[in-house]
């Protein structure tokens, strides 16, 4: 069957669109934050206002191009949230779990994702402003991005509870427990509001490096499991068929 015919007839095409958009979004996210804007790993929290001005100048075009891409394409983050919401709807649990997750993540994306893009773009677009103002934008950007990770905590716990209560076998139960591990690391970032140096600062070994390692593994795992769900899904309401083992 040709690709065009497959697209017209495949009943799972919307799910596959959401899944490929999710992969594309996380790839774009990594390139923008780690390569183009170099806002991850985060800058040092103890910079002076003058050093902050130099930090913005050093990344001027990267910030503009990178976050322009996010403003144009960042809406695709909604596809990953919608796909996860679908996965919870596919479970045998109340719809309240899915809607709670959807609302929580939609709201959480504003401080946890968009604020840094706006703050850093303002800093890059207005380099002539008072260094104290740029310093404020720098703090605001990183603290909103890293310091508000806790807003994702409840979402992870909702997903965990849904997986552990589900009877349809949408996800393996160990992934429910991995959600708990991820939620617990979201707590760890909270002290970054207090510390400007050390392991708990926003660029610290515990608050950033260990957290990102856990979050990175969690993200790869859930993207893989969502793909597996779409492959197995019969689009019904009962138990999801088990994977077919070949060979």
């Amino acid at each position: 069957m040709s690709l065009g015919a497959s697209l017209r007839t495949d009943p799972k095409r919307e799910l596959w669109f959401a899944w490929y958009s999710t992969v594309a979004f996380y790839s774009l996210y990594s390139v923008v934050f780690f390569v183009l804007t170099r806002t991850q790993p985060p800058g040092r929290p103890w910079l002076t206002p003058e050093q902050t001005v130099a930090w913005f100048a050093d990344r001027h075009w990267g910030l503009l191009v990178g976050f322009a891409l996010i403003f144009v394409l960042g809406g695709f983050s909604a596809t990953s949230i919608s796909l996860i919401t679908y996965s919870i709807r596919r479970m045998s649990v109340s719809r309240a779990y899915a809607y709670s997750y959807l609302i929580l993540y939609a709201i959480a994306a504003i401080p946890g994702f968009l604020f840094i893009c706006v703050a850093m773009t303002v800093g890059a677009m207005r380099p002539e402003r008072d260094p104290a103002l740029l310093h404020w934008l720098y703090d605001f950007g990183f603290l909103s991005f890293s310091g508000t990770m806790g807003v994702f905590l409840v979402g992870s716990l909702i997903w965990m509870a849904a997986i552990l209560l589900d009877k349809n076998g949408v996800f393996p139960r160990w992934f429910g427990y991995l959600n708990l591990c991820n939620a617990l690391t979201e707590v760890v970032i909270a002290p970054s509001w207090i510390f400007q140096r050390g392991v708990l600062a926003w660029n610290g070994v515990i608050a950033w490096w260990i957290d990102v390692a856990v979050f990175g593994m969690y993200t790869v795992v859930f993207i893989y499991l969502l793909r597996s769900l779409i492959q197995r899904d019969d689009l019904g309401t009962g138990p999801v068929p088990a994977p077919v083992i070949t060979g």
């Binding site: 160990w174 429910g176 427990y177 617990l184």
Partner: peptide, 15 residues
């Protein structure tokens, strides 16, 4: 599956 949590969380605490 619970042992996955035990091992994973032990690794996090070890770090």
């Amino acid at each position: 599956d619970m042992w996955f949590f035990v091992v994973f969380e032990s690794l996090v605490f070890t770090s």
